[in-house]
Amino acid sequence: MSNEDIYLCIIGLCIVSYIPRVAPFLLLGKRQMPHAFELWLKYVPTSVFGALIFCSIFQTDSGVDFSFSNISMLAAIPVLAVAAKTHSLPYSIIVGLAAYWGLQQVM
């Protein structure tokens, strides 16, 4: 991607990132969102992350890989355990990097 395209992309990202951040401030107090819409929104983040995580850990260059030689999949196990217990982003990252590095050494 050219430098010009990168800045164009950044402007686009800025706009679409800002909309969900600012919209409630502008809309709320004046108008109530339809309940069905709010309910749908509750399920969006978990779906995005589920999809992103599965694609990140099971998808390899040669297709979907559920085998025990898949380091990304194996390293996700301790991360999932720590994340479920602590809900901490820094801990998840540290455990993930340590687990991935450790598996790289032994496999």
């Binding site: 399920y43 983040p45 978990t46 992350f49 992103l52 995580i53 991360v79 990252i93």
Partner: peptide
């Protein structure tokens, strides 16, 4: 892998309900 670990950490924010875990 820091990114993948972060996704898992962010996903875990939604682990307070079984339905959210299943949807993910």
């Amino acid at each position: 892998y820091a990114l993948i670990a972060m996704f898992i950490g962010l996903w875990s924010f939604h682990f307070w309900h079984k339905k959210l875990i299943l949807a993910g």
